[in-house]
Write a protein that binds this DNA or RNA. Structure first.
Lengths: 208, 208
DNA sequence: ATCTGCATGTTAGCACCTCTAACATATGTT
DNA sequence: AACATATGTTAGAGGTGCTAACATGCAGAT
């Protein structure tokens, strides 16, 4: 807790803010090198501590990454809520806005985005991540229902929300994996999102 | 080249079929543990050779995984062509069939599927993977055009094909990541695919 | 048939990584 | 002041990717 807890060079034996600084280093490295290439050692180097230090704050490497993924989901969710606050209620614009935020987040933080969804889905332990994702999904369902003039979510709303989610999720991955560069697909994000919203939250394609 | 190149216990100094056997072990491990958890050492153990042996056949770990991803793409592509051969030309069924194969492959071989798309998109080196993906994507474009009664692919076909790809890609990942378990989305694959095909390769949602 | 070259296996070892144990130092409670 | 606790350190075990140097066997030239 000396002059500058930010700087690596510290004068006191104790760090003062190591936990937060390790998490920040982890987040940066996940972005720079990708979740796979992240190493605890490198985060330690960046924070200016020994390689054993993190284990006073985190159970293991997985737990560090888990925190990053969790924070990412909360950031993404908050961005959605912020964007929704700017749109008129019950309009397709709100659907488009959520998709825009989803994809914008993926493009802005591809490393964290990959972590959020790529992190092992091994049942428990990560149930808070699953919970956060579900919460966000529920917001989408609710918006779809409102577009149809309903205040209650019915099964077809769930279905349409899930179609929308699949689409933006897939588009996000194709974009950050660069699959659309070579395939020379000329597309405008805003138009595409509106197009999809119209096609999905519109006249149904089948009786079901 | 003795009695059984399959069995780990070999009598001769030389293995006879190490390259193929290492690739098979790699494929198995990628499925069992996931691409991240795969280790060359373990593949060696499974093939019954020392940890240095693979480097007579492959440049590095990355190259081994690359082969698995490549083989996966070819398998997926072949499955698509096989399935297409069973469908009547110019029908939506063909679109549905391709989506079905895509998702079925992801569910059957999630490890390889992740590898196919998760493997570093670092420019060159993997250009053959990109090429294979593009080839498959071109087939989708062509099928979309045929559904519209065209023999030539025009820009709107590319766009619709890309919407379809995004959707099945996203759905595949959501499924193998188990995101749809907790969200209790009740859906029938065949109906959903047909639904999407109708919505996308149907009346456009916007003028563009 | 033998010699010799090359492909393909081995062991040894470096550098790096995760994580633990044992020890050191600062902090705050009594 | 004494002590318990939190949080840092060094040392090291065990795993991993990969290379260098050496060993073995196959195959073609003489």
């Amino acid at each position: 807790m000396n002059t500058s807890p930010q700087n690596a060079a510290r004068e006191s034996y104790h760090h003062g803010d190591l936990r937060a600084q390790l998490l920040e280093a982890t987040r940066q490295l996940v972005e720079e090198k990708g979740p796979d290439q992240f190493s605890v050692s490198e985060a330690c180097r960046r924070a200016g501590v020994s390689t054993a230090a993190p284990y006073k704050h985190f159970k293991d490497k997985e737990e560090m990454l888990h925190h990053i993924a969790h924070a990412g989901m909360e950031r993404q969710r908050q961005q959605m809520l912020d964007e929704l606050a700017l749109c008129e209620a019950g309009t397709l614009d709100r659907i488009v806005a959520m998709g825009r935020v989803y994809i914008r987040f993926a493009l802005a933080e591809p490393g964290v985005f990959r972590l959020m969804f790529g992190l092992s889905e091994d049942h428990a332990d990560h149930c808070d991540l699953v919970q956060l994702g579900d919460d966000t999904f529920c917001v989408v369902q609710s918006e779809v229902a409102k577009c149809h003039g309903r205040s209650e979510v019915i099964e077809s709303d769930v279905n349409e929300a899930f179609l929308l989610w699949s689409f933006v999720h897939g588009l996000s991955f194709l974009l950050i994996d660069g699959k659309l560069k070579e395939a020379k697909v000329p597309f405008d994000m805003e138009i595409t999102l509106l197009d999809i919203a119209r096609r999905v939250v519109g006249p149904s394609g089948s009786e079901n």
